[in-house]
């Protein structure tokens, strides 16, 4: 499942909803991304996430389908927020549920790595010296590339 929303999400409620009645699930892996108050040596007061409505949902659904193709998953959920967020706020939630931990943990890592390089989101940080757009990191591209040649299980 994919959700792109301005509102916050309740992690416990999302896990409960994802697993309700599905007793083949043996484990759930999660990634929760938070807004940090520092970027390098600069203090960040807040950030605004912009996205491309339509393409965002399409890309997230493609990435999720790819995870289900590579791993035997019982359920998954990606929630990504947009709009203005402050330090400590939740940005993104990835949940993957499977019979065993290997598939859940690996697919969760895959989803967040691919999401960062494929989903059309951009971050504008508010700093003491004005607003600035966050540049893409080579490390994120490297993390995503690591999965290109790997298959799931």
């Amino acid at each position: 499942m994919i959700r792109v929303q301005r509102e916050d999400f309740d992690i416990g409620a999302e896990i409960a909803a994802l697993t309700a009645g599905r007793h083949a699930i043996g484990g759930i892996a999660s990634f929760i991304g938070l807004v940090r108050d520092v970027a390098g040596d600069t203090t960040v007061g807040a950030m605004t996430l912009e996205h491309y409505p339509g393409m965002t949902e399409t890309k997230l659904a493609e990435i999720e389908a790819e995870a289900h193709r590579r791993w035997r998953l019982d359920a998954s959920l990606i929630i990504h927020r947009y709009g203005r967020l402050e330090p400590g706020d939740r940005i993104v939630l990835v949940l993957t549920a499977a019979a065993h931990r290997e598939a859940a943990l690996a697919s969760c890592g895959f989803l967040i790595d691919w999401l960062k390089t494929q989903a059309p989101f951009w971050k504008l940080e508010e700093t003491g010296s004005g607003d600035r757009w966050v540049a893409a990191r080579d490390a994120d591209e490297d993390a995503a590339r690591r999965w290109r040649d790997e298959q799931g299980q």
Binding site: H51, V92, T117, W122
Partner: peptide, 24 residues
């Protein structure tokens, strides 16, 4: 959908230009 610079265009296309993405 992402395309390369040699992608052919058609009249009704929706074309979006943006910097490298920074979500997550």
């Amino acid at each position: 959908d992402y395309v390369k610079f040699d992608h052919k265009l058609r009249p009704g296309d929706e074309v979006a230009l943006f910097p490298p993405v920074t979500g997550g």
